[in-house]
């Protein structure tokens, strides 16, 4: 079964239904599968539950799906950069389930790895633990969290081969590797698409078993959320 598709629309054909859950990789705007997000937007599919660490910014990334009111619920750790998000949330049009970032990362890793639940100290004694089982191990309290899977996972990688083996670049890795394992179907967009054997086996971050469809999206522009620099001739201070 050929994994390589010609474009994002073809790659998502037959996969989109109203009310589905979608995991989207990225941290802020770094490592987001922007082309696949655009195709989801163009499809008009709605009532989505979107699982992603952040919600993009207004008009960029997942912010685009918020603008078109396609998202019913988000599961995220931080959505502060998005005014449209705040507007819809305070207006009761959008539900949010906050997960601590580490808990979200581990829920997705566990979901993809067949672990239905795990215990973590994160959030014990806070709102996060309400309604959840808390158990003691070695004299310390831990809260139970559930593994998380999605109907569709969309991820971004720097390089992939036609078997779906993926390599990520720097901090654009973030949530992509875990999400790749946790989608019932995972679609990847890669900046460089190569033949099997061109990526050394030891260098592969995500084995192709997790990737069902892959598209080549050469880089046009990558957005920077907080361009921060220092001046030459000065010490390397913040």
């Amino acid at each position: 079964m050929k994994k390589v598709r010609t474009d994002a629309t073809e790659a998502l054909a037959g996969l989109l239904t109203d009310g589905m859950t979608v995991m989207a990789g990225g941290f802020g705007l770094c490592g987001i599968p922007d082309e696949l997000i655009d195709a989801i937007r163009a499809s008009g599919v709605k009532g989505l539950t979107v699982i992603s660490n952040n919600a993009g910014i207004d008009g960029v990334g997942l912010g685009k799906l918020l603008e078109t009111r396609q998202v019913a619920k988000m599961i995220s750790s931080y959505v502060g950069e998005n005014k449209e998000f705040a507007r819809q949330y305070l207006g009761g049009e959008l539900a949010i389930e906050f997960n601590p970032q580490g808990t979200l990362a581990e829920r997705i890793r566990a979901g993809g790895a067949g672990i239905p639940a795990f215990f973590t100290k994160t959030g014990v004694g806070t709102l996060i633990a309400e309604g959840k089982e808390v158990r003691e191990f070695d004299g310390e309290s831990y809260v139970m969290e559930r593994g998380l899977v999605a109907d569709l996972a969309i991820v971004h990688a720097w390089k992939g081969d036609t078997e779906g083996n993926l390599v990520y670049r720097k901090t654009a890795r973030n949530f992509n590797p875990m999400m790749a394992t946790a989608g019932k179907v995972t679609v990847a967009q890669v900046e460089h698409l190569v033949q099997p054997g061109e990526i050394d086996g030891d260098a592969i971050h995500t084995p192709g078993i997790f990737i069902k469809r892959i598209i080549h999206v050469p880089v046009r522009e990558k957005r920077i959320e907080q361009r921060t620099t220092r001046k030459r001739g000065e010490p390397a201070t913040v």
């Binding site: 995220s76 959505v79 601590p100 580490g102 994160t122 996060i128």
Partner: peptide, 8 residues
């Protein structure tokens, strides 16, 4: 806005 990584 959410807790990000602070709780962890």
């Amino acid at each position: 806005k959410g807790m990000g990584g602070a709780m962890d």
